[in-house]
Computed example of a mutant assay.
Amino acid sequence: MKRCTVVLLTLLLVSASLFAAGTKEQAIGGDSSLDKVMSKGQFVMGLDDNFPPMGFRNEKGEIVGFDVDLAKEVTKRMGVTLKLQPIDWNAKEQELNTGNIDCIWNGFTITEERKQAMTFTAPYIHNAQVVVVRDDSPYTTLASLSGKSVGYQAGSSASSAIDASPDFKKSIKTFIEFKENLTGLMDLEIGGIDALVVDVTVANDNIKRSGKAFRILTEELAPEDYGIGFRKGDQKLADAVWSQLLAMKADGTLAKISTTWFGSDITVVGK
């Protein structure tokens, strides 16, 4: 009787081990994100279509931008069609998790909080949160904005940068949220706010293309990196996109696209 019990326990343990191994193997091989995109022949890119130069609408109403050009080339090489899907930036994670989009690719800052909720590629551009003021204003440092009003885009990493700078945050009299950075810049221009916290790439592009009298404070609020965000666990799709960016880096395509938008290759892919 004892021998039968020992044999039965041994069989149960072996079965449990095999089941656990199979479950683990299934979990590892259960990522069908790339297969789904390839089978439907379409890659849906979620973006803010008011975020120049990464993604925005030109005078014809077409969505253009640096990230758009990158995605077009990546999907062309993958052999799938690119669908540009404008989203509410404040609801971007929901859009991703419900399957409305395959990724968030639009000057999307990598943060520890976001890394817990989704799968990211490595950084492809270094960025920073900076403060923009009117050129005729007296503000030259972060400290000089004490008691003033400062704007930022809702749901953006500007909010995180402000939270990570408690002394600066405490010194500001009023913070104002805007749905889009361009709206915030317009409010800054007419004096509705004293300053705007925004990505340096956006600030430089706006000043260059608009010719408006804005100035960027030399003190950065926070350095950061741009990455492409996918649903948590969609590693195969993320890897496929990243492999194409590496290939574009190697053959000079990435540098060519970057130079078109920024005047030089500012990307950090493969570095």
Score class of each variant (00 low, 15 high):
Lys2Gly: 14
Arg3Lys: 14
Thr5Ser: 02
Val6Thr: 08
Val6Asn: 03
Val7Gly: 00
Leu11Trp: 12
Leu13Met: 12
Gly22Phe: 09
Thr23Ser: 11
Glu25Lys: 15
Gln26Trp: 14
Ala27Cys: 03
Gly29Cys: 04
Asp31His: 10
Ser32Arg: 14
Asp35Glu: 15
Val37Glu: 02
Val37Asn: 09
Phe51Val: 06
Asn58Trp: 07
Lys60Pro: 00
Gly61Pro: 05
Glu62Arg: 13
Val64Ile: 14
Gly65Asn: 01
Asp67Val: 01
Asp67Ser: 10
Leu70Thr: 04
Glu73Cys: 03
Val74Leu: 01
Lys76Gly: 06
Met78Gln: 05
Val80Trp: 08
Val80Thr: 08
Leu82Lys: 11
Lys92Met: 08
Lys92Thr: 00
Lys92Glu: 07
Glu95Arg: 15
Asn97Leu: 06
Gly99His: 13
Thr109Asn: 06
Arg114Leu: 10
Gln116Cys: 02
Thr119His: 11
Thr121Phe: 08
Ala122Val: 10
Ala122Phe: 09
Pro123Gly: 04
Ala128Leu: 11
Val132Leu: 06
Pro138Val: 09
Pro138Trp: 11
Tyr139Thr: 04
Ser144Tyr: 11
Ser144Asn: 10
Ser144Gly: 05
Gly151Val: 04
Ser157Val: 13
Ser157Lys: 14
Ser160Thr: 12
Ile162Gly: 03
Asp167Cys: 03
Lys169Gly: 00
Ile172Gln: 08
Ile172Cys: 07
Asn181Gly: 05
Leu182Gln: 14
Leu182Ala: 08
Thr183Leu: 12
Leu185Asn: 02
Leu188Lys: 10
Ile190Asn: 11
Gly191Val: 06
Gly192Val: 03
Asp194Glu: 12
Ala195Ile: 03
Val200Gln: 13
Thr201Ser: 12
Ala203Lys: 09
Ser210Cys: 03
Gly211Lys: 12
Phe214Ser: 08
Glu224Tyr: 05
Tyr226Cys: 00
Arg231Lys: 15
Arg231Ala: 06
Asp234Gly: 00
Gln235Asn: 12
Leu237Asp: 04
Ala238Pro: 04
Ala238Trp: 04
Asp239Gln: 11
Ala240Gly: 09
Leu245Ser: 09
Ala247Pro: 05
Met248Glu: 06
Lys249Phe: 08
Ala250Gln: 15
Ala255Cys: 05
Lys256Cys: 00
Lys256Val: 00
Ile257Glu: 01
Gly263Ile: 04
Ile266Leu: 11
Val268Leu: 03
Val269Ile: 10
Gly270Cys: 09
Lys271His: 11
